[in-house]
């Protein structure tokens, strides 16, 4: 019985549908199959032209030769040899890594605490959204202006020094506040902490509140709820935030140049200097190594947390 009932409409369709309509259905099916490709094409082409080909260009140019005025097509390893055998390179990589680790640890601590407060201690959704917006608005303003804005605050005659002097806490202006590793890391944290807050907050808002209640009912203290429920479930957000912060710091040059007053170096700054000296092949070799290092770091973080599951 059921067999017949099911096959009946199919038979009727095959027999009764006029050929013209059939063709139209076919065309519709064809369009449906092609549509996604057409819809994705503009985006894909943009990435191909402005991301993939440029990276390929960098890789090719990294094997080229150069003199003081031009680049010369070639195939040689000299750029890499010079880069990897120089002790300066290693020091600069170590210095950049130091900035990355310090910034990562600070943004993680601050970002997690802020996200945790808004997600679990603020009770009304309206307030949660408002506070979240307050945290994200600076993301849409200029990074350079946000860096510059520390200068009147941290400088020798800056706000902080004059306040501390007036209070009698210190009797000489603190010199380490501006144009130092301190100010570089401070600016990094200031600029990039949002990249930590947003994904962690997003992860936390997805945690089923019943799990927290269950833990409390089972006798867990607030601290235990945090360490046994919330932190493990926030891991995808922590991973995404960490990838953002680490890659941004590893590739940065403008913050290091502005906030260290030219007294510190980073990989990006080394590249920027080579670019300004028109040593493009050297800069390209540097870029390839940097890209490799950054991708390895990201791969490492993805091994710890599988974010693909969470998207």
């Amino acid at each position: 019985m059921t067999d017949r009932a099911e096959s009946l409409p199919a038979q009727r369709r095959e027999g009764a549908v006029p050929r013209r309509l059939d063709k139209r259905l076919d065309r519709g099916r064809l369009a449906a199959a092609i549509a996604p490709y057409l819809q994705v094409a503009p985006l894909t082409l943009t990435f191909a032209i402005f991301l993939l080909i440029p990276i390929a260009t960098i890789i090719v140019v990294s094997f080229w030769d150069y003199d003081s005025i031009r680049v010369i097509p070639d195939f040689m390893m000299l750029n890499y040899e010079e880069l990897l055998t120089s002790s300066v390179t290693w020091q600069i990589y170590l210095n950049t890594l130091k900035y990355a680790v310090l910034t990562w640890a600070l943004t993680l601590g601050i970002g997690f605490t802020v996200a945790y407060f808004v997600a679990f201690h603020v009770r009304s959704l309206t307030w949660q959204i408002t506070l979240f917006m307050i945290c994200t608005i600076p993301f849409w303003t200029s990074n350079i202006i946000r860096m510059i804005s520390w200068i009147p605050f941290l400088g020798r005659n800056g706000l902080l020094n004059s306040t501390l002097l007036a209070m009698g806490v210190i009797d000489q202006p603190l010199e380490f506040l501006l144009f130092s590793d301190f100010s570089v890391v401070l600016a990094f944290v200031h600029l990039y902490v949002l990249f930590m807050v947003v994904p962690i907050f997003n992860s936390m808002m997805r945690i089923d509140r019943a799990l927290v209640e269950a833990a409390v009912d089972a006798g867990a203290t607030g601290w235990q709820v945090l360490t046994n429920v919330i932190i493990p479930l926030s891991k995808p957000g922590i991973a995404i935030g960490s990838i953002f912060v680490v890659t941004l710091v590893m590739g940065d040059f403008i913050t290091v140049r502005l906030m260290s007053g030219g007294q510190s170096a980073s990989v990006g700054l080394m590249m920027a200097n080579q670019i300004s000296l028109l040593q493009y092949p050297a800069a390209a070799a540097n870029a390839v190594v940097l890209l490799f290092v950054v991708l390895m770091m990201v791969a490492l973080m993805l091994r710890i947390v599988d974010i693909r599951k969470e998207l």
Partner: peptide
């Protein structure tokens, strides 16, 4: 995703060179 992760200065250099 790679486009987010690749350092900005690399994109800049690559397009400039291209």
């Amino acid at each position: 995703v790679a486009s987010l992760i690749v350092p900005s200065i690399l994109v800049s250099l690559g397009i400039g060179l291209m």
